Amino acid sequence: MRTRAITTAALLTASAALTACSSSQAGTVAEPTAASSSPNSTVSKATAPSTLAFHQLHKSSSPGDDEYEAYSVTATVLGYEQPVHASESAADEIHAPGNVWAALDVKVCNQTGEITVSNEPWQLSYADGARVKPADFQYDDFPQPVYPDDDTDVPTGGCVRGKIVFNVPGGKRPATVVYSTEDDAPVSWSVPAA
């Protein structure tokens, strides 16, 4: 029986929009305390609003099959910061004058089964329909701790929390954070006004 990978393109498309950049310095932490519009609220696929609030949990699960083990996970966005400081300029990095670095703080917890996470499923979505993926690299002075950018196993009962960095237009703010995996429908969180 194979283990289900919940990574960037194959992570649990836990119906939530989130974005963040990270590196291989991921930290595993205890199960999160959920808080959002109502503290400790968890939202499942069946009852999920179209857009969640920061700190609101999205729960995703699969009963498993002959090829993959069953799993149950939660995902949430904890914060968004723009701009964030780094020694290298975001504008110079991709030759886009006016661009800045932004950081998304996210957390995914494995309730049951075996999962693998990465930053790939997270994107920032703008009102005009533009989407921004996490930065392809990390600088040492990016916000810490970083969320894994490569496949990282998360044991049952474990969580991974970290910051995902994006190279974004400085004069705009994303409307939502989108979390999309091959196993679930995309989910999104509303980004609060600055």
Rank of each mutant, 00 (worst) to 15 (best):
D105H: 09
R2L: 00
A14H: 01
D140Q: 13
P148C: 06
V108F: 00
S118H: 11
G129S: 09
N40T: 11
A185T: 12
T42K: 13
Q111Y: 03
F54H: 13
F142E: 12
A53Q: 14
H55S: 01
Q82P: 10
S190N: 05
V84E: 01
R4T: 15
A135C: 06
T47W: 13
V77Q: 10
T176S: 03
T181S: 15
V77D: 04
K59G: 07
V117R: 03
A53F: 05
E120I: 05
T112I: 07
L78I: 05
A193V: 07
A175E: 15
Q144L: 02
H55K: 12
S188L: 07
T19R: 03
S22A: 05
L11Q: 04
Q56W: 01
D141E: 05
P145Y: 04
W101D: 09
S36D: 14
A34M: 11
A194L: 07
T47H: 11
V160T: 01
S61N: 02
A70S: 08
P143Y: 00
V187H: 15
T181C: 14
H55M: 13
T112H: 08
G98M: 02
A53K: 12
S36H: 10
V77G: 14
T76F: 09
N110G: 04
E120G: 14
T76G: 01
A10N: 08
P169N: 11
R4G: 02
D92V: 08
S60I: 04
E69L: 06
A102R: 06
A175H: 10
P63F: 02
A35D: 14
T19L: 13
A127P: 10
K59H: 01
N110H: 02
S44Y: 00
D92C: 07
A53M: 07
L57Q: 08
A46W: 04
T8I: 06
W101S: 06
H55C: 15
G158Y: 03
A48G: 00
P97Y: 10
V106Y: 08
S44F: 00
N119G: 09
A185V: 12
P192F: 03
A135E: 09
R131H: 12
Q123E: 15
G27N: 13
V187Q: 12
P32Q: 10
A17E: 08
V29Y: 11
R161V: 05
S23Q: 00
L124K: 14
S118Y: 12
S62W: 14
Q82C: 06
D151T: 08
P155G: 11
D150L: 07
P32G: 07
P121T: 09
V146M: 12
N99F: 11
A90S: 03
E114T: 13
V191I: 15
V154P: 03
P39W: 14
G79R: 12
K163S: 11
A17W: 06
P134L: 08
A135S: 02
L104A: 10
E81H: 13
A35K: 09
V106W: 04
S22R: 10
